[in-house]
Design a protein around this nucleic acid. Structure first.
Length: 165
DNA sequence: AGCAGGTTTAGCG
DNA sequence: CGCTAAACCTGCT
């Protein structure tokens, strides 16, 4: 199969920092990548022990978050590459407070749309899970989906909920 | 245009 | 209650 996809020509090489930290509640490693001021986060599936590396401010914030603390993340996120609709969704998600949840359809309503499916799609584009708490968006009858794995979502919600009680 | 998606709702067993 | 099917809206080929 041939691909003639036009690659965006981003050759600017900035300093890239890559941290690794273990999230107890998730029983999983989390990778934090930051170039310049923008960061991205993803969950690693590998289970074998890795060397942790915590240098970035956001890494320490995440560490506190995983200890059950309501953390205000300071890291700057770049969602300029996303569509206006997707940006709208993610910005709205940032307003959801710790321990609270909203449904896909409810979130769609607050941004003046009925596109609950598109909302889910937009959430899947979130480059920074947890910092933009897309796990707090749940299905009307159930937990809904999660790009990083539904079990991760469940553990995140559990972490926030047990702190709330 | 056509299709699929981190849903939702209704309809039926 | 559990399952299936159609509908709604956006984004990617």
């Amino acid at each position: 199969m041939r691909e003639h996809a036009k690659e965006p020509l981003v050759l600017m090489k900035r300093k890239i920092t890559r941290d690794i930290l273990f999230a107890e509640p998730l029983e999983r490693y989390v990778e934090v990548i930051q170039q310049s001021i923008v960061c991205s986060i993803r969950f690693l599936s590998g289970k074998k022990p890795m060397r942790e590396r915590k240098t970035l401010p956001v890494s320490f914030e995440l560490e506190r978050y995983f200890q059950g603390e309501d953390v205000q993340f300071s890291c700057e996120v770049d969602i300029a590459g996303l569509t206006p609709f997707q940006q709208k969704v993610l910005r709205e998600v940032q307003k959801i407070r710790y321990g609270r949840t909203i449904t896909y359809s409810g979130l769609a309503r607050t941004i003046g749309s009925r596109a609950f499916r598109a909302v889910g799609n937009a959430l899947a584009q979130n480059p920074v899970p947890i910092v933009i708490p897309c796990h707090r968006v749940v299905a009307r009858n159930g937990i809904g989906g999660y790009s990083g794995g539904v079990d991760v979502k469940a553990r995140l919600l559990d972490l926030e909920h047990r702190d709330c009680q």
